[in-house]
Simulated assay, not measured.
Amino acid sequence: MQSNVLYEKTGRVAFLTLNRPEKLNALDYATNDRLLSLLDQIEADDEIGAVILTGAGERAFSAGGDIHEFTQSIRRGTDEAVRDFCRRGQRMTARFEAFPKPVIAAVNGIAFGGGCEITESVHLAIASEEAVFAKPEINIGIPPTFGGTQRLPRLAGRKRALELLLTGDTFGPQRAHELGLVNDVVPGEDLLPAAFDLAERILRHSSLAAARIITAVTRGINTTIEEGLLIEREQFARMCATADVQEGLDAWIARRTPNYLGQ
């Protein structure tokens, strides 16, 4: 039986592919659970320093939650729907958001609903010129359930986010770039090379420092500036006694490239 999420190690990059192309890579419960399991495995692997996530096939990154499966949960009652669909999806996107290794979405096509919410939650994203985004949950009478009502306003601003959330309208990759949802837009054939290039530009630096930066930004973005600065100091203090700091300083003084452990 073919896996619904493919996993390949390419150097120090974990390359994940949502693998339900016949369903436009819809996020059924098994796919969400598989992603969480793989992220646990990747976090424990010291050889991996970054993650790239894309979708199988030529049409979709992910069309969002598996509506047929979700419908069955709704019919069995609110408690089950909240537990199996909403909490599961929120757990998955929260894991991406707080993951200590940089996660890059390579958005190769449709990114609707949960697919858009994954894009919102990961640290970095590159879209192909063929990508198309939407927050279509209102079309079936629900709000977004994987964090979309919270993350999109923080990325795009309240009024721009509400327009997308309340209309369900599709929008293209350039608009996604303007809204801060993706970092860059490239031709389709350049998407994965661009994602791997971005990963390599990150991987030349200390993986410990990258983790501390991600933690400081993720924890601090929703706090006051005073609380955020305290978090920043805490993350700096955690780095001070590490070999990576000493190596980085020594390399800078000697005008050489740092040689971090495990790289």
Rank of each mutant, 00 (worst) to 15 (best):
residue 238 R to Q: 11
residue 246 Q to H: 13
residue 94 A to H: 09
residue 143 P to T: 12
residue 258 P to I: 13
residue 77 G to E: 07
residue 67 I to P: 01
residue 226 E to R: 09
residue 173 P to Y: 06
residue 23 K to E: 14
residue 130 E to N: 14
residue 109 G to C: 05
residue 76 R to W: 00
residue 92 M to S: 04
residue 43 E to A: 13
residue 84 D to M: 14
residue 43 E to L: 03
residue 147 G to I: 01
residue 159 K to N: 12
residue 192 L to C: 10
residue 114 G to I: 09
residue 114 G to A: 14
residue 246 Q to R: 15
residue 215 T to H: 13
residue 39 L to C: 11
residue 182 V to F: 05
residue 50 A to C: 14
residue 166 L to T: 15
residue 232 E to N: 11
residue 142 I to C: 10
residue 195 A to H: 11
residue 92 M to R: 06
residue 196 F to P: 04
residue 183 N to K: 05
residue 261 L to F: 03
residue 179 L to S: 07
residue 79 D to S: 15
residue 11 G to N: 11
residue 152 L to D: 07
residue 124 L to C: 05
residue 115 G to H: 04
residue 15 F to G: 02
residue 75 R to K: 14
residue 235 Q to V: 03
residue 197 D to A: 15
residue 230 L to F: 02
residue 96 F to M: 15
residue 89 G to F: 07
residue 113 G to R: 00
residue 61 F to C: 08
residue 157 G to F: 12
residue 126 I to Y: 06
residue 80 E to N: 09
residue 91 R to I: 01
residue 70 F to Q: 12
residue 121 S to I: 01
residue 112 F to G: 13
residue 182 V to G: 10
residue 221 I to G: 03
residue 67 I to S: 05
residue 15 F to S: 04
residue 259 N to Q: 15
residue 222 N to T: 10
residue 14 A to D: 05
residue 166 L to G: 15
residue 90 Q to I: 10
residue 233 R to A: 15
residue 72 Q to F: 06
residue 9 K to W: 00
residue 256 R to S: 10
residue 202 I to K: 05
residue 59 R to S: 06
residue 184 D to N: 14
residue 223 T to Y: 00
residue 75 R to T: 02
residue 1 M to Q: 01
residue 164 L to S: 03
residue 177 H to F: 07
residue 157 G to T: 12
residue 229 L to W: 12
residue 120 E to R: 01
residue 5 V to M: 04
residue 41 Q to N: 04
residue 26 A to R: 11
residue 231 I to W: 04
residue 218 T to C: 10
residue 22 E to G: 07
residue 94 A to E: 12
residue 73 S to P: 01
residue 46 D to Q: 14
residue 157 G to A: 14
residue 231 I to E: 08
residue 204 R to M: 14
residue 212 R to M: 13
residue 214 I to F: 04
residue 85 F to R: 04
residue 98 A to C: 12
residue 219 R to C: 09
residue 260 Y to H: 12
residue 103 V to W: 03
residue 184 D to T: 11
residue 106 A to V: 07
residue 185 V to S: 07
residue 114 G to R: 09
residue 108 N to Y: 01
residue 117 E to C: 09
residue 75 R to M: 13
residue 186 V to K: 08
residue 51 V to F: 04
residue 187 P to V: 00
residue 49 G to M: 05
residue 184 D to H: 10
residue 101 K to R: 11
residue 89 G to P: 05
residue 133 F to G: 08
residue 125 A to P: 13
residue 119 T to P: 02
residue 33 D to N: 07
residue 122 V to I: 13
residue 213 I to Y: 03
residue 57 G to N: 10
residue 159 K to Y: 02
residue 199 A to Q: 06
residue 67 I to N: 05
residue 2 Q to D: 12
residue 100 P to W: 01
residue 58 E to M: 09
residue 195 A to S: 14
residue 115 G to K: 06
residue 207 S to L: 11
residue 76 R to Q: 10
residue 232 E to S: 15
residue 21 P to Q: 09
residue 60 A to G: 09
residue 131 A to K: 06
